[in-house]
């Protein structure tokens, strides 16, 4: 592989990193569906078809109140969308789902048809991590799909490094913890020790349905149904696994690096 044809090939291909967030976001696969939208008005009180069909009991019907869909527990299997007679629950094809508070993920009340997107960090943390955020990833049970999609962010197409965001080897060098998986009992000690090893100020990101509420394994006695019980979580990114675009959007929203292009709410 001589030097010559590496350089030649490189010049021919040019830069393959996407323009986003300066340019338009790459399209989600058409059958992906993106975030769910719940219009409580359309939902008639008597039917509870979606509640029975959801594999992770993400949909609940509190008495007297319209349907409540917890996007944190949802694994985006879209069973409820197909089975709902009145199309109260629809797919919005919107990749933006990251939130700062856990309760923002519960949709259904008036005004909460869609996810309230995450605000940026407060002034002090943003000044500190705005242009240099080093994350330490901890995989605590789960199925390795979220890790794969976080790895994809490092490839030349997404190129996370251009935002100054980098995954580092030692927690001593890290500013934040990115947790995937429902935190099995066997990984509880390791997660706590990693969190302690991080120097303050530090942030925690729960990535994927497992890390938020246990994902497809919700309720199993072998794990803690997500990281929020063990460490204070600053950012929730739902999905099973969340599309790389959703993860990147969450990270940039946290650092207020999205620019004016599509900052909504």
């Amino acid at each position: 592989m001589s030097v010559h044809d590496t350089l030649l090939n490189r010049l021919k291909r040019g830069c393959e990193t996407m323009a986003y967030p300066k340019g338009p976001a790459p399209a989600l696969p058409d059958r992906h569906g993106g975030a769910l939208k719940v219009e409580a008005a359309k939902c008639d009180a008597s039917c509870s078809a979606c509640v029975t069909v959801c594999p992770t009991e993400a949909i609940a019907r509190p008495a007297g109140k319209p349907v409540a869909l917890d996007l944190g527990r949802c694994i985006f299997c879209a069973e409820c969308v197909t089975v709902c007679p009145t199309k109260a629950i629809t797919q919005s094809n919107d990749h933006r789902m990251a939130v700062r508070q856990r309760e923002d993920l519960v949709l259904g009340d008036t005004g909460k048809e869609q996810v309230r997107l995450a605000q940026a960090l407060d002034e002090k943390l943003r000044r500190l991590f705005g242009r240099s955020l080093k994350l330490r990833q901890v995989s605590a049970a789960g199925c390795n799909a979220c890790e794969a999609d976080t790895n994809v962010l490092g490839t030349i197409g997404w190129d996370l490094g251009r935002f100054g965001i980098q995954f580092v080897a030692s927690p001593r060098h890290a500013d934040g913890l990115l947790i995937t998986g429902p935190v099995s009992k066997n990984m509880e000690l390791a997660l706590k020790k990693t969190y302690i090893a991080l120097p303050e100020p530090r942030i925690v990101i729960a990535l994927g349905a497992c890390a938020i509420a246990g994902g497809p394994f919700i309720g199993h006695p072998q794990h803690h149904n997500g990281a929020s019980g063990l460490v204070p979580v600053d950012l929730f990114i739902p999905g099973c696994p969340p599309h790389p675009l959703t993860i990147l959007d969450g990270l940039l929203r946290l650092l207020d690096r999205l620019g004016e292009s599509d900052a909504r709410r």
Binding site: V53, C54, P55, T56, I75, C77, S139, A140, A141, G142, G181, P182, S184, N186, M187, A190, P216, F217, I218, H220, P221, Q222, H223
Partner: peptide
């Protein structure tokens, strides 16, 4: 470390969440 108790959950299945 990644033990989530998949086999134990299937007993008496297939349940709603089994295929997922």
């Amino acid at each position: 470390f990644q033990h989530r108790g998949v086999e134990e959950a299937i007993a008496g299945g297939p349940h709603r969440a089994t295929v997922y």
